[in-house]
Design a protein around this nucleic acid. Structure first.
Lengths: 231, 231
DNA sequence: GACTTTATAGCACTCGATGCCAAAATGGAA
DNA sequence: TTCCATTTTGGCATCGAGTGCTATAAAGTC
C-alpha cells in the first residue's frame, strides 16, 4: 500500500496520562481523526459538502471507505471535530461557578469561556460554523449534537431552581440559551467581525434582559467595536 | 390495479377559491397527502420511525414507492403535515399586532394563537411532536423546518428594532423564541398535561423576564393547573 | 516462527432519494 | 368513436450514506 504508516510517530503517547502506559500492540493506525478532518474540510470548502462523497474523502486521506467510517460514524460528524470535549468544559464551567452568582450570568460566562479561540483556530472554525449553519444536511445534524449541549445547561438550571432537567423551566432556559449562542455563531461566521467573544457576550446580555425592545434597538444601532450597550 | 380511484370524489374542489375552476383533466390522483400521513403515522407509532420503510408505507397506502415521493419529498416530511400553512398564520399574527404592543408580548401571543388545537387534533399532534422531539432523524430534520419559522420571527423583530433580519439581534430573539416554544412542545408531548396553551404561554413569559431566577423557581414549584405565576 | 492483538480493505447489502420513460387514466375535440 | 392533450402513476436504473461480516496485513510477544 502506498503511504502506509505515515503516522508511525503517534505510538508512545499515553492518551490521557495512563500510568500503565501499555506498549501499544497490534497494527498501527494509518491516519488520525485530525488528518481526516483537515482534508475533508478542505474538500467541503472547495466543492461543497453535498458534492463531496465519502469515497473522495477516503481517497484523499489514502484509506478505504470502510475505514473512514471507523474514524467518524458519519460524514456529518467530521465537521464537528472534538465537540464532546467542549461539552465537558461547559459542564465544568457551569458547575464551578459560585452559588451566589446570578444564574444567567453564570450561563453567559460559561458559554463565553468555552468559546475562546486563538487566532490560529479562527479560520478553520469559521469554515466549520459556516457549514454547520448553512448546509441543510448539517443544519439538521446540528440539532442532534446541540441536544447534548442543552442537556448540560438544563442540568445546571435544574440544580439552581429545582425540579428535573426534563421539566419545562430548565428546558426552556437551555434551548433559549442554545438559540442565542447559535445566532451569535452564525452571525459571526457570516460577517467580517473578528470579535466572536463580544458577539456571544452581547447576545446573552440581551437574553438576560428578556430581549427588552429598547435595549435591543440600542444594540442593533450600536457603533461596531464600541463595546456592549447596556452591559 | 386494486383499489384504484378510491378518491374519485376529490375532483371538483377548486383548490383555494380559484374562480376559473378548471375542470381537472388527466388521471385522478389515487390518494391524498392526508391519507398517506394517517397510515404512515400509524406505522411510525406502532413500529417506530426508523423501522418503517418507505416501501411499507407505500404498500399500506396502495401506491408505489416512487409515487410516495411525489406526495412527500422525504419520509421525514410526513411527520410535519401542513407546516407551511402554519408559518403563514404565524406571519399574519405577528404583522397584524398593534405597533404599541410590546414586542415580546406580540411574539408570545402569536405563538400561542398559532398553536391552538381542537381536542380532536391533540392525540395525533402528540404523536407528531413526540416523534419530532425524540427520534434522532426527526430531531435533525426539525432544525431545517424550524429555520423557516425563525425567519418569520426575525423578519418581525427586524421590523420593530431596525436592521436586517440576518443581524444578531433579530436572529437571537428568533432562535431563543424557537427554543422556548420547542421546550414547551417537547414537555407537553412527553407529559400528561393537556394544557398546551398554558405551557407555551408560561414559557414565553419566563423568556420575556430574562429567565429571572426567582420567577423561574416559582414556576418550577408551581401548583399544576393553578395558572401562571408572575403573569 | 507461532500466537495474539489491532487496524485495515473489500464485499454484499439495506435504505433513502432522484431521474427517466413508458403506461394508465381522464376530459375534450374531431 | 377515435384521436389528442394532460396528469398521475409505476418500474427501472442509479447514486450515495451507512452497516455487518470476513479475510488479511502489520505490529508486539513468547
Amino acid at each position: 500500500m502506498v503511504g502506509a504508516n505515515a503516522v508511525g510517530a503517534h505510538r508512545g503517547e499515553a492518551g490521557g496520562g495512563d500510568p500503565a502506559a501499555e506498549v501499544a500492540r497490534g497494527r498501527r493506525p494509518s491516519t488520525t481523526r485530525e488528518a481526516i478532518a483537515r482534508l475533508a474540510l478542505e474538500l467541503f470548502d472547495r466543492k461543497g459538502f453535498d458534492a463531496t462523497t465519502v469515497d473522495e474523502i477516503a481517497a484523499a486521506v489514502g484509506i478505504s471507505r470502510r475505514t473512514f467510517f471507523r474514524y467518524y460514524s458519519s460524514k456529518r460528524d467530521v465537521v464537528w471535530g472534538e465537540f464532546d470535549a467542549e461539552l465537558v468544559r461547559l459542564r465544568d464551567q457551569l458547575m464551578s461557578a459560585p452559588q451566589d452568582e446570578p444564574m444567567m450570568d453564570v450561563v453567559r460566562r460559561a458559554v463565553v469561556a468555552t468559546n475562546r479561540f486563538g487566532a490560529g483556530e479562527l479560520d478553520e472554525l469559521r469554515i466549520r460554523m459556516g457549514l454547520i449553519s448553512t448546509v441543510p444536511a448539517l443544519v439538521a445534524h446540528s440539532a442532534v449534537r446541540y441536544t447534548e449541549w442543552c442537556e448540560v445547561v438544563a442540568d445546571f438550571v435544574a440544580g439552581r431552581v429545582g425540579g428535573s432537567p426534563d421539566d419545562l423551566g430548565p428546558q426552556a432556559v437551555a434551548r433559549a440559551a442554545l438559540g442565542t449562542a447559535m445566532a451569535a455563531f452564525a452571525c459571526w461566521a457570516q460577517h467580517d467581525t473578528d470579535d466572536l467573544t463580544g458577539e456571544v457576550d452581547g447576545a446573552f446580555r440581551l437574553l438576560a434582559d428578556g430581549f427588552d425592545e429598547d435595549r435591543l434597538r440600542l444594540w442593533v444601532h450600536r457603533d461596531p467595536g464600541s463595546g456592549t450597550p447596556g452591559a
